[in-house]
């Protein structure tokens, strides 16, 4: 109990956990695109930046309430998601990935060259509106809505697209539009995450949203277990806390981080929780507790 209290009152833990929550929302958005629908997106940070800059500009110049700005940030990101999706969702696999990567870089360069966003000098003077409570309420809402989406007709259609596009198409799913819809929902969450980021950091710079940020978020989704919400949560937790835990190794930190990425993929190529059905594991643990000792089969 004491430990929980110290996490809430210690500003450092508070800060780290808030950041983790913010990136978790973005990662959950990417989870829908990449994990559930199976579409590569290497430019997720661009949608964060769209949400971040638009909401911050609204807060600064229009003085509209934060929640409205956050919503607009999310919707604007989704709009750009749709605009990018319309031409590029006809591409598949790596081609889609590289197109989104290119889009991400172009967005960043446009922000560098835009006057109202402060260009390369960045945008400061954003009031602090984000706090740990808001972030985690939104995390819960995001997780809840993603569960609802995944278990709906829409979500099952997305899973069908991931498994076999042609089969999905013959089953009467409009693959193209479903992909765009998934992209829109996923980028909406990225926009919301960006808005939270802007009102947490209070200062934005285009360099915060380069492709390395996009790949960080992709890592969160893949490393935890592609296609699984608990996996995405675990991946985000492990990878955003790892740099903090690795502080003691000082300048060797990124060396170990890189090596960890390779090792985790080699030993768990489907992610930490890939192929692990948590409900089944939980049931088998419980039934073992009752003395039955059944174990789920290995695959």
């Amino acid at each position: 109990m004491e430990g929980v209290l110290s996490i809430l009152t210690n500003p450092y833990y508070n800060q780290v956990l808030t950041m983790m929550g913010i990136f978790l929302i973005a990662a959950l958005g990417l989870h829908l695109i990449t994990g559930v629908t199976g579409q590569f997106s290497f430019g997720h940070a661009a949608f964060l930046s769209i949400g971040a800059y638009s909401s911050a500009l609204m807060t600064i110049y229009l003085h509209t309430p934060f929640f409205l700005n956050m919503l607009v940030g999310g919707l604007l990101a989704a709009l750009f998601g749709i605009l990018l999706g319309i031409p590029s969702m006809r591409l598949t696999g790596d081609y889609l990935g590289i197109t989104t990567l290119g889009f991400g870089e172009i967005v960043r360069i446009v922000f560098i060259n835009t006057k109202i966003t402060g260009g390369a000098m960045g945008l400061g003077g954003i009031p602090k509106e984000t706090n740990i409570a808001i972030v985690y309420i939104l995390v819960v809402l995001t997780v809840f809505s993603l569960y609802r989406i995944q278990n709906s007709r829409f979500g099952r259609a997305l899973a069908a697209i991931r498994e076999d596009e042609i089969a999905a198409e013959t089953m009467g799913i409009n693959v193209y539009w479903y992909k765009i819809k998934a992209f829109a929902v996923g980028t909406f969450f990225a926009g919301v995450s960006g808005a939270l980021f802007a009102h947490m950091m209070q200062y934005l710079n285009p360099s915060d949203f380069g492709f390395s940020r996009s790949f960080d978020i992709l890592n969160f989704v893949v490393l935890g277990g592609l296609g699984s919400i608990p996996g995405t949560i675990l991946g985000t937790a492990v990878l955003s806390l790892a740099p903090e835990f690795l502080r003691f190794v000082k300048e060797y930190r990124m060396l170990i981080y890189g090596a960890l990425m390779i090792l985790m993929m080699i030993f768990r190529p489907y992610g930490l929780l890939g192929n692990v059905d948590l409900v089944r594991v939980f049931r088998s643990l419980r039934s073992r507790g009752a003395g039955k000792g059944t174990v789920s089969g290995d695959s």
Binding site: P11, Y12, N14, Q15, M19, M201, N205, E244
Partner: peptide, 13 residues
């Protein structure tokens, strides 16, 4: 930058 925010907070604690 996001790590900078974390570590600043850490030094303050």
């Amino acid at each position: 930058s996001s790590e900078a925010a974390n570590v600043t907070q850490k030094m303050i604690t």
